[in-house]
Design a binder for these strands. Structure first.
Lengths: 210, 210
DNA sequence: CTGTAGTTCAAACGTTCGTTTAAAATACTT
DNA sequence: AAGTATTTTAAACGAACGTTTGAACTACAG
């Protein structure tokens, strides 16, 4: 088995188990046995458990953030042709759409989205800090665009509303494979229809009068 | 030291530590040493660690849900006097206000709100199941009221929007003691102003056109 | 004061955890 | 094909975990 096979197999299994049982709740033995590699393989390839969760997160988060940045740039260019700044739904869509559509992009990414959905709420600082470190710059970019798109809303209100959006989005991400709060009704939820459901909600919330 | 003192001291410390470092991340030894009680005290008074987290959650969640129910009943009565059903902001306020104001009600409740804010996102089934078990009935009540208040919105859309609200709220609850996503600007956030910030957002989101 | 139920205590239990080690096996270069 | 570098392996490490135990201690009724 080549090195790359081992590393990627570990990453895939770790992604799945971290998403299901969290960072603390997933043991190295559970990862390595399901990945059918030796227990010491994680420490050899990633140094330690922390190095593994870092690699798991960054493997998909960096490309995702690139997608979000590209989407925002496209929206900016499109608006610039009419001498304007992108409006609220355009900005929010550039952030939300690549996120919720991620599970359709790669087979293993479905686990990743619930993992990331939990990251902000995780009590373990390891996963949360890695996540925040990677998210801070891009959130700042979107924040700036939202402030420009909402000239009548004070900056700190925009800040909080952006956080409300992040809260809704991350909660939805966690719900992709499981009803967020179980109800008796069966509720369908494919990724694309979730975007269509979430967008009007967050757009109206962002643009709401004070 | 009387039995009640020991039990409550354990509950207070456990509430604080569970909120800070999660269920798995908090050891019985950390709890008992900070509470200045014997290690075996938790097993004696609560049977096991799971019994402790159950007691920690239910101690404040049951009264909180009673407050929410009372608030909703009051809104229903008020609307009934005009032969109407309570509108969206009235329903949402009955859910949100007691929640965010909880930290001001009791000194230790500040820890509880972040604990509960994490509960839905927790990877550990222990805490999440206890929380969901206690929340399911009351969420159903509010869901029904929202459906009545939004006759033009399909039921399943209302369901998802309610979940978006829950996502925003729980994210905010986690942020009460710490910036949700750190920004360079200092952002003030006392409980009452958070209610004033969140309410227009979720109301507009709920009432948004399809 | 005596006896009983309730509570606290130090100590140890077995298990699981992340990590390390050094030898064995494989892959790659010359 | 030989020799070096990389990777895999089995075994063990010490530490931390939740829980159990039985004796010591406390409070209070008879």
């Amino acid at each position: 088995m080549s090195q790359i096979d081992t590393k990627e197999k570990i990453l895939d299994v770790a992604e799945e188990l971290f998403a299901k049982t969290g960072y603390r709740g997933t043991s190295m033995r559970a990862i390595t046995s399901q990945a059918e590699v030796n227990l010491a393989a994680v420490n050899y390839h990633f140094g330690a458990k922390q190095g593994l969760i870092t690699a798991v997160i960054e493997r998909r988060l960096l490309p995702l953030n690139k997608l979000r940045e590209q989407g925002l740039s496209a929206a900016k260019e499109k608006a610039a042709k009419e001498g304007k700044k992108p409006d609220v739904p355009a900005v929010l869509l550039a952030f939300i759409e690549p996120t919720l559509l991620l599970p359709d992009s790669a087979p293993g990414a479905r686990n990743f989205i619930t993992l990331i959905g939990r990251a902000l709420a995780d009590t373990d600082k390891t996963a949360r800090n890695i996540f925040i470190l990677n998210m801070k710059p891009i959130i700042r970019i979107f924040y700036t665009c939202l402030v420009e798109a909402l000239p009548d809303i004070p900056k700190d209100v925009v800040y909080w509303r952006l956080n409300f959006v992040i809260g809704s989005l991350s909660h939805t991400m966690r719900a992709i494979d499981r009803c967020p709060v179980p109800m008796d009704e069966a509720v369908a939820h494919d990724a694309r229809s979730l975007v269509k459901l979430l967008m009007p909600f967050v757009t109206a919330g962002m643009e709401a009068p004070l």
